[in-house]
Amino acid sequence: MVKFGIEFVPKESYWKILYYAIQAERGGFNNLWITDHFNNRNVYVTLTTAAIYTNKITFGPGVTNPYLVNPVITAQAVATLNELAPGRVVLGIGAGDKTTLDSVGVEMQKPLTAIQEAIEIVTKLINGETVAYKGEVFKTAGAKFLFKPKGKIPIYVGAQGPKMLALAGKIGDGVLINACHPKDVEYAVSCVREGVKEAGKNYDEVDVTAYTSFSVHEDIKKANKAAVPVVAFIAAGSPPQILERHGINVKKAEEIKEALKVNDWGKAFSGVTPEMISAFSVCGTPDMCIERISELLKSGISQFVVGSPISANVRDGINLISEKIIPHFKK
């Protein structure tokens, strides 16, 4: 049965995120993902409070990166969280986004190698091992925790490109695919399957997750309006081959990008087309969202994550998903 996750960005106050987290847990969501960007509030502080205020929802960073947070610190953070909420912690890790790393002068060095090495270090440390590791990106000299970590912490790899998707399938317990359209998810899943096969695992051992931009409202116009800003940024950042895959005019996306650069929100947002909304978000009335999620499920995903904006009114959005969408898939 498909799992439902929800993502929050701790740019919001902690009390709003926790209010929504409690609401989401009650509404039948299985997973809570908190984004990790240095310029927002800290992900682990947010997750700690979520651990205290919730009882059963699984949670973790969605996603951290090994460049800004050394893998030993990531391992320490999730191992400590797992003491607070045993069995409810997962780790989402990816290469991060170049813009954010550039802004702090950190190079995204060998992302595939970095992720592989980071996961090896994290896994060994949370298994209580002493880690003497000489990787190409990371090195440790006998690193070991002075406490005994308990339990298994599933590791999800955030991935977009074909090589990272295959690696994620190979070494991850889960994969977080940043995609909303069945065409993109189908392609991503085919890459994940290659990695899974290479590792000699069964596909259903891996929790393959569509991590989406989501906007639901009973009024389609309001759903679209809430989705537009997020879609504008995604369209502006998408490579031409992705835009062409969805029949989107590359020049139009370029115009949005230029408008965003100079903070001309009006021009940027008015440039968003229905094709862009369809390609880069799961958006519409509850019935329309159910239809899209059903299509994505056919691609082979096992978790569906509701990400920003969720709805024009987040509280109402969570209620709609809990009352009309999740029950449809839990019948």
Partner: peptide, 25 residues
């Protein structure tokens, strides 16, 4: 609750009061 969740004046919320709301929620 709607008034609070839609406010832009988050910085005016005393943490003690926010925690009390979460405790009750």
């Amino acid at each position: 609750t709607d008034v609070l969740l839609s406010t832009k004046n988050d910085e005016k919320m005393p943490s003690e009061l926010a925690n009390a709301i979460l405790y009750h929620w």
